[in-house]
């Protein structure tokens, strides 16, 4: 390889030279004195959510429907396991993939006995994971404003589990529902400080494409179905 980091000094030199003449700000927006953007304002401009849990839940449910995510409210883990069992028999699953976690450790023993389980923690065979009928993960957060599920490489079984199997099942608690992306980022910052997982992904509906005549098709490369099992 040529030099360690390439043309670093030359590029930075050109950047500094170019920036000697300032450019006017054509669209002044409110910012705090430190030059940091006022993220608190984003909420006033983006689509409204509503402050109460009920309003957040209602919007999340509405967007899930539009996005063709399947949101199922479960009374407890036993019901969540029963929902998975019924999906499993409807789609004739043989193997599901999952990871270790607070909720999943309790859920896994409740799943049907005839359903083989592949646990991805500590490494897995990618061909075996690809052959799984569904992947079950926990998530960091649910975002009301956008109908998104936030997964990370830290708490959702790594990078691939939530996107390789054709059916992604998310198990979450209502307390994980946040208002918007701003709150999601704040919450992630509070949890991880400077040590973020190597991947943070906001999943908004099942995998989709409109590349052919702008007609919506689900399951382009990632999951064709996204089921969210919501526990109290």
């Amino acid at each position: 390889m040529n030099s360690q980091n390439g043309d670093r000094e030359a590029i930075l030199g050109r950047v500094r030279e170019a920036l000697r003449v300032p450019a006017p700000l054509k669209h002044p927006a409110e910012r705090s004195a430190g030059g940091e953007p006022t993220t608190a304002h984003f909420r006033e401009w983006l689509p409204p959510v509503g402050p109460s849990l009920d309003e957040k839940f209602a919007l999340f449910a509405k967007l899930s429907e539009t996005l063709r995510s399947e949101l199922i409210v479960c009374a407890d883990l036993a019901q969540a396991a029963a929902e998975i069992a019924s999906l499993s028999s409807a789609e004739s699953w043989k193997t599901i993939a999952l990871h270790r976690g607070g909720l999943l450790d309790k859920l896994a023993p409740l799943l049907p006995n005839n359903l083989a389980q592949l646990c991805v923690d500590g490494g897995y065979d990618k061909n075996a994971l690809e052959a799984c009928d569904a992947g079950i993960t926990e998530c960091e957060l649910l975002v009301a404003q956008t109908g998104s599920v936030c997964v990370t490489s830290d708490n959702s079984g790594g990078r691939v589990l939530s996107v390789l199997p054709p059916h992604h099942i998310v198990i979450a608690r209502q307390s994980q529902l946040v208002t918007d992306l701003t709150e999601a980022y704040e919450s992630l910052a509070a949890k991880y400080r400077a040590h973020y997982p190597s991947m943070i992904s906001f999943i908004t509906g099942p995998s989709r494409t409109g590349d052919i005549e702008r007609i919506l098709v689900l399951g382009a490369h990632g999951p064709k179905r996204l089921t969210i099992l919501l526990l109290p």
């Binding site: 956008t146 109908g147 991947m199 999943i203």
Partner: peptide
């Protein structure tokens, strides 16, 4: 509202 996958 948001693209399918926004990943950092």
């Amino acid at each position: 509202h948001l693209t399918g996958y926004n990943s950092m």
